[in-house]
Design a protein around this nucleic acid. Structure first.
Lengths: 221, 221
DNA sequence: CGAATAGTGTCTATCAGACACTATGGC
DNA sequence: GCCATAGTGTCTGATAGACACTATTCG
C-alpha cells in the first residue's frame, strides 16, 4: 500500500485565485498537469510530509496555513497500483514564487478558473481534490480569519477584501466590509502604520489577530 | 504500510449523546476501549471499508450518515508498526442496537460524557479522534440538516430539538426552535401525520427535507 | 378541571446591506 | 480643483431571543 501526500496550494496573484500545479515528467500521466505531492516517508508524520513537499515545490517553510483536506483511495485512482493519498490545503501569501529547481519539472501558479476549466486534463483524481480544496477554502473564509493567510504579515483592509473577492469571485461593498472586519474583535490588530500604495487616502496597516473563529461570520452574498 | 478505517459512531439514547466503543480482545491495548474499525482490504474503496466495518459492528447498513473525518498517521500511534487510519464519522438513529456476535468482543453505546472523561484509557490515539468527531458533529449541526440523521424516518420537532440539546449539551427554547426549523424551507417535510407519544398536544410528524445547507444556521447560543 | 406539550404572535436589540457623506492622499 | 481610495454615519428590512398567549391532548 503506497501512501502519498498531495497539496492544493492556493494564493492570490493579480487579484486572481491561483493554484500551484506541476507538469508531470514521468509516467503515468507524463506531460499532464498535477497537484504537487509525493510519497510519505516510512517514519514521517503525515503533516511533516506535507510541509516537506510544500517546501520542495515552493521554497517556503513558514507563514503558510496548512490543514488536512481529505484522503482519497479509490482502488483504480493510480494505474501503477493501490495508492492512497492524503490531500492538504495550503494558503500562501501572494509574493511567493515557485522554485523550478526541485523535482518538479515546472511548478506554476495557474488561475483556478483555467485549472477548473481544464479539469479533465489533470492527472489522477486531482480535479476532484482541487474542487474539494476550493470548496473548503471558500467555506472557511466565512467563519474563520483564514483570508489573512493569503496576505503578507502587514496588510490593509483593501488587501484583505481583495482576497475575499478573488476567492469568492464576487465584489463586496468596501465600506460595509471595512466596518465588519474592523469591528470584529480579535480579527485584525492595528499597527498604527499606514500604506499609501494605491494613490488614494493612506490606509491603516493591520496584522492578523489571534481569533480563530469569526462570529458572526463574513457572509457570502 | 498498514491502512485501517476507524469509526466514530454517534447516536442519541435516552437524551444522551453516545458513542459506540468496543473492548479490545487482543494486544495491543487488550481490554481497553477503542473505536470500532479494522483493516482496509487490498482493493476496497475507503468508504466501502467504513460501511463494512459499520455493518459488522452495528448490523445496520442503511439510513446512516457517514462522512470522512480525518486521517491519522503519527509514526508511533500503533506499537505494532506504521499504521495509518482513515477515521469516519457516522450518525445513527437512536433505535439501533449494536451486535455482539461479530468480531467485536463487546460493542457498547457509551455516553460521550463518560467516554471523554476516561479519554486517557482509550486505545491508540482514539481519544483525539473521538474529540475531533464530536467537534465536527457539533459544528455541523449549526449549518447542516444533519441532526435529522439521528432521528427515525418520521420525527417530531421535539425529537429534533432533543438531538440538538444532547449534542450541544444545552437546552433550547422550544418555541423559537420550532419556528426556526419549520420556517427554513427545505429542512423539514410535513407528512400530515401526528404523534401523541408525549402526553400533550399531538405533534406533527416530519421527514427530512432535501436541503443540505442551512442558511441561516441554527445558532448555538 | 389541571398538567403537559404543541404551536403562534409580538416585542426588542442587533445586524447586514445600501448608500450618503467626510477624510486624506496624488496629480 | 479633480480623482481615487479610506473610513464613518445612517437608514431599513430581517432576524434571534425572550416570552405572552392559544391549541389540543390525557387523566
Amino acid at each position: 500500500m503506497a501512501l502519498t501526500a498531495d497539496l492544493v496550494v492556493l494564493t492570490i496573484r493579480e487579484h486572481q485565485l491561483c493554484v500551484l500545479l506541476v507538469e508531470r515528467g514521468i509516467e503515468p500521466f507524463a506531460g499532464r498537469w498535477a497537484l504537487p505531492g509525493g510519497f510519505v516517508l516510512p517514519s514521517e508524520d503525515l503533516i511533516d510530509a506535507a510541509y516537506r513537499e510544500l517546501h520542495e515545490e515552493t521554497g517556503i517553510s513558514r507563514g503558510v496555513h496548512l490543514e488536512q483536506l481529505a484522503t482519497y483511495g479509490a482502488p483504480g485512482r493510480d494505474p501503477r497500483g493501490r495508492t492512497v493519498t492524503v490531500a492538504w490545503l495550503a494558503l500562501a501569501p501572494g509574493l511567493v514564487e515557485p522554485v523550478a529547481g526541485s523535482d518538479a519539472a515546472g511548478a506554476t501558479w495557474v488561475p483556478v478558473v483555467d485549472a477548473t476549466a481544464k479539469a479533465t486534463s489533470l492527472a489522477f483524481d486531482h480535479a476532484e481534490i482541487l474542487a474539494d480544496g476550493l470548496e473548503r477554502a471558500r467555506a472557511k473564509l466565512e467563519y474563520s480569519p483564514l483570508a489573512a493567510a493569503f496576505c503578507p504579515p502587514k496588510f490593509t483592509v483593501a488587501q484583505l477584501r481583495a482576497v475575499y473577492e478573488a476567492v469568492w469571485g464576487q465584489s463586496l461593498d468596501p465600506r460595509n466590509f471595512h466596518r465588519k472586519v474592523t469591528r470584529t474583535p480579535g480579527f485584525l490588530h492595528p499597527t498604527g502604520q499606514v500604506s499609501n500604495a494605491d494613490g488614494g487616502r493612506p490606509a491603516q496597516l493591520f496584522t492578523r489577530g489571534g481569533l480563530d473563529v469569526l462570529n458572526p461570520p463574513i457572509t457570502r452574498h
